[in-house]
Amino acid sequence: MTDPYLRVENVVKKFGPFIALNGVNLEVYPGEVHALLGDNGAGKSTLIKTLAGVHRPTSGQLYIEGKPVDFRNPRDASDAGIGTVYQDLAVNQLMSVTRNFFMGRELKGPLGTLKMDVMDKIAHDEMLKIGIDFSDPTQAVGTMSGGQRQTLAIARAIYFGAKVLILDEPTSALGQKQQMEVLKTVKRVRKRGDIAIIFITHNEIHSQLVADRYTFLALGQVIGAGKAGELSHDEIRRLMAGGAEMKDLEGELAAI
């Protein structure tokens, strides 16, 4: 059994009187997809922002490879190998693929000049590795499909050293085919074996297609966790809905 790359221990996050996270535990292993599921308001966003260094936990501890860490800002988290791909992807539409790929971390020659050829090649190769063959790295990102942009953001996070890749609802706001493209990308990254993926979603079907491990959040607490083989489809559906029996909800719906 390998050790978890990232371990979250009893993390509590309060915003004033509001308890967003109430003692969350989570273990993330390299080469695995860890699905983080929960309804709106369950605390998924707060949890990932805590992992990404945006929020500091009120109490509790994060461990990277067994060592306690304290992220004061997003830079700390990204230095520790946590790459977050937010829903808006943080890409700029008017800029080219390469310029987006290296945004903020450009490769510089003398006088701060860009090594455009080298950067073009790296952007192309890195995206090819996880599934997109880009003929033209000067293409503006605005002309790319949602799935391609997702791939760009993921390839960028990996290239800049992400050991834990946090994907925030990567399949929402995409069409059917695009969703499958993203899931394929997720599986390709998983296959590398050295990267842990936290896959946030509220689509249990997508999570079942790629996840090795599940954690369910509801009202800021973990209400269930387990490995892919250990949870039945109905159990996953039940936990997704925050622990309520889906049959009851369907019954209530029918009664109106």
Binding site: N92, L94, R99, M103, G104, R105
Partner: peptide
């Protein structure tokens, strides 16, 4: 370019 296009994503990438 990054700043003018979308300053939030530029900032998120360390610009």
């Amino acid at each position: 370019y990054a700043t003018g296009d979308n300053k939030d994503s530029a900032r998120a990438n360390g610009v």
